[in-house]
Structure formats: C-alpha cells, structure tokens
Amino acid sequence: MPEKDRKDPVTGHIEKEVENALTEGLPELPPEEAEALKEKVRRRVREEMAKEAARLAREQRTREKKRQDEEMGEKEEKFERFNRNFRFQHMVLFSSVILLVLTGMPLKFPDFVLSRFLIALWGGIQNSTIVHRIAAGMLIYFMVHHFIYTILTRDGRRDFLLMIPGLQDAKDIRKNIRNFLGKSPDKPSFGRFSYIEKFDYWAVYWGCVIMIGSGLFLWFETEVMRFLPKYAVDMAHEMHSDEALLATLAIVIWHFYNVHFNPDRFPGTLLWWHGQLTEHEMKEEHPLEYEEIMSRRGKESPEVADR
C-alpha cells in the first residue's frame, strides 16, 4: 500500500528521535533498568503510531468510496418523471390542501385539543376563514390549470390516458397482494402509473370536484339560495365536511405511506422538487415504462445513425 511506504521513513525518524531523547534523559540509571524503560517507551510509541496509521487509512477509504459513489451517481441516467409544469401544479395543490386542512379541520372537530391552537395560529376564526378561502382559490386555480394542462399539452394528454384504470390494474392488485402474502415471489411490473398512483390521482380528482362544488355552495350561500332551498346548502355542508375527512385520511394514510413513509423512500423523497427518477428507481418501480423508453430509443437510434 502506498501509505505504508510513505509512512515508514517518518516512523523511523520518529523512533530515532525518541531513542536519542531517552539516552540523553537517563544517564544515571543502571543500564538494565534504563534498557527496560527504553523498551517500554518504544513499545508504547509503536502502538500509538500504528493506531494513527489505521485511522488515516480509514479516512482515506471513506473519501474514496464517496467519490466513487458520486461518480456512479452521475453516470447513472436520470429520467424526468414529472415535468416542471406538473411539479408546479403539485406544489400549488399541496400548499392549498395543507392550508385547507389546517383551517378547516378545527371547524369539524372543535373539541380536538389542537383545534383552538390551529385557529389561534391565524389570529382567530375571522382570519382563519379568510385563509381558508384564499387556499380554496388556490385549489380552484390548480383544478383549472390541470384541466387546461390535460387538454393542451402532449404530456398532459398522455398522462391522462395512462391514468385510466384498466383490467391490468386488477391483475396487478391481485399479483401484488399474492406477493405481499408470500405466495408468489414475483412483483407486478408497473407501467408509468401503478394502480396505487392511479387511485391517488382519481381520489384527488373526485375530491376536488366535491370539495370545490360544495365549498362554493357554502361560500356563496346567499346567491345559491336564490335558486335552491336551504336544505341544499345543508347537504353541501355535510358533503364538504365528510369529504374533507375522507380526503385528509386518503392523503395521510395512502399518499403519505406510499410516498413518504414507505421504507424504500423514508423519510421522503425530493421527487416533487426535481422530478427525476434514477435508472435504478425506474427499473424497480416502473419497469414497463423503462422498457418502453429503451425500446423507443432502440428504434430511434438507427434513424439517428442514418442521418
């Protein structure tokens, strides 16, 4: 090892110095005793030097490993799963939902211990209801944005079509459960969207329609009651309150587990920020999509070569 070669002259030099110092410092002692003492000191010095050398070697190894890992990571191809537009939509959605839950749930559960605190956080209910409406505006904006995105962009159209549940999803569920139970070793191979993600997507779709619809009834109750009786508003109120609970539970149990607390991802992922998956993750989580991309490339590359 290069370290050993580098170290040896140094070690020798130090040992010589210690030797000199010892002979100078022990003139009066009888030679046997002096020799014993010298031997002791020498042994101790050697031990210390060995320890130090080992430490340096360890550090060197970790540094190199880190560099190698970084090089590997850079080499591994990144696949863009969510484009910038989609990431922006997601950020608007989650900011709005967090605000809505924080300001809305205390109204559903006024006896909950944190409710008073959550309302006081905004300086009282007068303000929290305003925050709720601002967040509602954000959610409505998100809904409109997503709608236009779905219709007007190629990615949007493709994703929407891929989101439509099919027979394959039922098969995947069956396969996945059998795998969980240990009855079959192979996991289902998912395409761009697994049934878990499809469920998440349609839950948000359904949730947004109900929440925005019933929420607007409550927001503009006087205008609504120009056309509809009060009990329609009461029904909207009930719907708003129950659907809110459902949406919150779906996010907290389904989405959070599958995205954040799943042991593969714990304690979370920055996918929502950079939108990228590594090749390894692609192969692991969306093998069919990965294959598709690869085969498309295979078809494309000869064309490129032809040009």
Binding site: T222, M225, R226, P229, K230, Y231, V233, D234, M235
Partner: peptide, 25 residues
Amino acid sequence: HPKAGPNFAKGPVHVEITPSKSLGV
C-alpha cells in the same frame, strides 16, 4: 345575510341529522 330570499326558510334551521328531519343530509 343581505338579500336573503324566501329559500332561506326552506329546510330546518336547526339541522338534526335523522331520516325524518333531514333526509338528504
């Protein structure tokens, strides 16, 4: 509620969630 109309009176004000009192809710 300015501009409250006659529809405000259609349906119970104290909503009791029972099939006989407010079936829809």
